[in-house]
């Protein structure tokens, strides 16, 4: 056995340059995104990240995942490099089935069957549910969907590029499970926005 056999892809990508302040900052941004659904937050990305993950989803996982966190990576996001990077910096477990995950990293092509497998929590422990991190091309406050609910004064508009109509249908079903359900974070290269399970979504084309 060689000592260098483990110096493969991923174990040599640096993480946050200042782990404490950087992860606190990302945590604050995710918290703001969740508590003010649809508001766009800009995240200072780590200096490097695996090829299959974008900068903000890497930053969110660096900040929130630890050794008791199960992470599932959709096939397009999965790579030895990404797995090693996450293990090296967070110690998290990368799981093979979305149903075992606390965070599922997906993109806009990911099928609804994946979302249907995610943990939604239980009546006693609604917090034991999964959070989706969806890598997207662009997020804006253009009018594509209208968000209403806690954390929004009247309504917010949001446009996430290339999100399939089926996703929003699934999300609507998801909100009916409240207090159970899945929360979603959209992550473009530099920005994030979130739609938690508490939010009512109206699609522009449905109105």
């Amino acid at each position: 056995m060689s000592t260098q056999q483990n110096q493969v892809a991923g174990f040599s990508i640096p993480g946050f340059s200042n782990p404490i302040f950087d992860s606190t900052d990302v945590f604050r941004k995710v918290l703001s995104a969740m508590s003010r659904p649809g508001e766009i937050q800009t995240i200072k990305a780590p200096s490097a990240h695996p090829e299959s993950l974008n900068p903000t989803s890497s930053a969110i996982l660096l900040a929130l995942a630890d050794m008791e966190t199960e992470v599932w990576l959709a096939p397009e996001m999965d790579s030895i490099e990404a797995r090693n990077y996450l293990k090296f910096h967070t110690g998290c477990k990368v799981v093979e089935d979305p149903k075992d995950s606390k965070f599922a990293v997906v993109n806009t092509d990911t099928g609804i069957d994946v979302y249907n497998k995610l943990k939604v929590g239980s009546a006693e422990y609604p917090d034991r549910s999964a959070t989706v991190i969806m890598m997207v091309d662009d997020i804006s406050n253009d009018h594509d969907i209208t968000l209403k609910g806690p954390g929004i004064k009247v309504s917010n508009t949001l446009k996430v590029e290339h999100v399939a109509q089926e996703f929003w249908y699934w999300f609507e079903e998801n909100t009916r499970l409240f207090p159970c359900g899945v929360d979603v974070i959209f992550a473009s290269a530099e920005q994030i926005a979130a739609v938690p399970r508490t939010i009512k979504v109206e699609h522009a084309s449905c109105m």
């Binding site: 174990f11 040599s12 990508i13 640096p14 993480g15 946050f16 340059s17 200042n18 782990p19 090296f88 910096h89």
Partner: peptide, 8 residues
């Protein structure tokens, strides 16, 4: 050397 994982 450069830092891969800052002292923690």
């Amino acid at each position: 050397y450069s830092m891969l994982r800052q002292p923690e």
